[in-house]
Amino acid sequence: MSLDSYTTLGNSGLRVSPFSLGTMTFGEGWGWGSSVADSEAILARYIERGGNFIDTANVYTNGHSEKILGDYVAGRSELRDRLVIATKFFCNLHPGDPNGGGASRKAIIAQAEQSLRRLKTDYIDLYWLHNFDKYTPVEETMRALDDLVTSGKVRYIGFSDIPAWATAQAHTIAQFRGWAPLIAIQLNYSLLERTPEGELIPMAERLGMGVTPWSPLAGGALSGKYTREDAGKADADRGWMVSGYLAEKTFDIVDELRGIASELDTTPAAVALAWVQNRPGVTSTIIGARRLTQLEDNLKALDLRLTPEQVAALDALSTPTLNFPANVNAGAPNLMHAGATVNGEPTTPIDFAQ
């Protein structure tokens, strides 16, 4: 597989690369990002390899990430229509302004205009709601997004980090009213965060939404840099975003990743990314890099094919605890078809006397 092995995103005709380039690391305003020169080198290499799907947000490095991307593309006008540029709204970049963020009509339109200026473009390919706004009626949010699509300033819309019930509600309302539908969701998904398998991913599969995982390496915790042997010695670039993962479960998974990487002559990071990208429902995995070498390392995952035994070993070490009702529904097929064959697979008889 390569970056130009494009696939459609959800129930749409939008074609995107199997790996999306995340740009949260673009800019040094947060203390651990890439310089402008390094960011442009990463962009250039990703595009050279055939990548077309670039993900940013208004809040990333306080707007600098969008500006770096905008300056780069503006200087290469032939690129714009070849790229799928996605950005997010919600976070307030204007302290003291109660309407500076969120998902109200006023906030959405203002944030879109600000992002368009920083990106130096007249349209956004995919506009994500970044977080859940419990204070704004969902009809107001979806109608404002539909207006942006109708005006041509936005092509498609999606939700990031929103509960499954709220996403389904918004999508259903949009469908019934003939507004622009949600074509994708963005979520935190990795070998260390598999709880989206409970509701979010099944919802996306049923409703025709693409799934674009972020932090597939858990902020770097699964990169292979942090091992049991080096516990407490390696400093995490992102501090608490990584250190909170560095526990025995992580080290067990990293040990398995290292073993598989040795078998396949690759890196633990590539193995972890290959696992995510080949999960049911996943369309395009968001990869990040602060250095060009990290991007090259991550792209190795495109050529990996994990064996069923390798996948099973990783699955066993990372099995999530799914809360109600996922834990109950997991046994529903057996209760409904006890002892029968469903979709060619036998079910287990239920002994109600136990």
Rank of each mutant, 00 (worst) to 15 (best):
M203R: 02
A204M: 13
G198W: 08
S115C: 09
I157Y: 08
N188C: 10
M203T: 07
D133P: 04
Q175S: 13
A218I: 05
A180Y: 01
A164S: 15
L148V: 08
D125H: 11
I201D: 00
L148I: 12
A218M: 06
A164G: 11
A184V: 10
A144D: 07
P137S: 06
I157A: 03
P202N: 11
P137A: 05
M209V: 02
K153F: 01
R194F: 01
K134C: 13
G208R: 02
Q186K: 09
R177A: 14
L200A: 15
L182K: 01
G158W: 05
F159H: 15
L187Y: 06
W179F: 09
K153C: 00
A180P: 07
R177E: 15
W179D: 00
G208F: 01
Y156H: 10
G210M: 01
P137V: 11
R206V: 15
Q175P: 09
G208V: 05
L119N: 00
Y189N: 06
A174V: 02
R206K: 15
P163N: 06
P163C: 01
V211F: 01
K120F: 00
A170R: 08
D125Q: 08
E140H: 04
R155I: 11
A170L: 03
E205L: 14
F132L: 11
T150H: 13
A184S: 15
I162H: 09
V154C: 03
T136F: 05
Y156V: 06
M142A: 04
E199A: 08
T121M: 03
A166W: 09
P202D: 10
R118I: 11
S151V: 04
L148Y: 05
M209S: 08
E205R: 15
Y156R: 04
T172I: 12
V138R: 12
Q175I: 12
L191C: 06
K134R: 15
D161R: 08
G158N: 06
T136C: 09
P202G: 12
R118W: 06
